[in-house]
């Protein structure tokens, strides 16, 4: 299928004796917004790590826009168009919000080895727009380390977006946020998907967020793909209820 943005085939990864991902097949089309769910240790973060080059799969292949990206280093995968935000906000703590975003934009524009350009001018305007879009306008001059947990996650989203991705992977994008912050952030994520056509794949523990925003849900359990379907299909599946929702109730 050439219309797929992302195609995963037979992805397997072992950590020691633990099967973090086992023979996972998955495809994502352009413009989709999908979620990966599963109990702790189901392999969600592992799948993200494998897609983005943080780890190399033992077997299996990953194609992005028809190009085999299996095992490429992380920075090349970013430049191919896959960007990610981590479960724990991963930012540049001693730089200001503006510097975080502006510098990331400069990387995307190929200014990494520009020795004599003026870093404060390059991409400053775009950085401002991106910061506005992520609701951080009034905090742009703060050091990132001083931000609240929610703002840090939003900053990381801005950093991830500055790479101009075609596919955005969000690992628990609203973890640690207040209810208001969470809904604000998910609204932003939805807008990115609907208005800009950005393909988004996220993981989340909060089921109302998953079912409220994802159009497709993949359930992982012990590294295996159990169900891949609409939120309704997953919700109604007895297997899913047993391994996931059953556990949650307990």
């Amino acid at each position: 299928m050439s219309g797929d943005l992302l195609r995963i085939e037979g992805l397997t990864k072992m950590f020691g004796g633990i099967q973090a991902a086992h023979n996972i097949d998955y495809t994502l089309s352009k413009g989709e917004i999908a979620a990966i769910i599963g109990p702790n240790g189901a392999g969600k973060s592992t799948v993200f790590g494998l897609i983005t080059g943080a780890q190399k799969p033992d077997t299996g292949r990953i194609w992005f826009e028809g190009r085999d990206i299996t095992g490429l280093p992380a920075h090349e995968i970013v430049n191919a168009g896959i960007s990610r935000a981590f479960q724990v906000a991963n930012i540049f703590p001693k730089l200001t919000v503006l510097e975080n975003v502006r510098s990331s934009l400069q990387v995307r524009r190929g200014h990494v080895f520009s020795l004599f350009g003026d870093a404060r001018r390059l991409c400053a305007e775009e950085a401002g727009e991106l910061i506005d879009r992520c609701d951080l306008s009034d905090k742009r001059l703060l050091e990132a380390a001083d931000l609240s947990q929610g703002d840090k996650k939003r900053l990381e989203l801005a950093i991830a977006l500055s790479s101009a991705p075609k596919l955005l992977l969000l690992d628990e994008p609203v973890a640690g946020m207040s209810r208001d912050e969470a809904s604000q952030t998910m609204d932003l994520v939805t807008r990115l998907n609907e208005e800009m056509g950005l393909t988004i794949l996220f993981t989340e523990h909060n089921m109302s967020i998953v079912f409220g925003h994802a159009k497709r849900v993949l359930l992982l359990h012990r590294g295996e793909a159990i169900i891949d379907g609409s939120p309704q299909e997953v919700r109604d599946s007895p297997v899913a209820q047993e391994i996931y929702f059953g556990e949650q109730v307990l």
Partner: peptide
Amino acid sequence: SPFGYTLRM
């Protein structure tokens, strides 16, 4: 320069 900021990153 942007390189200087890359180093900071």
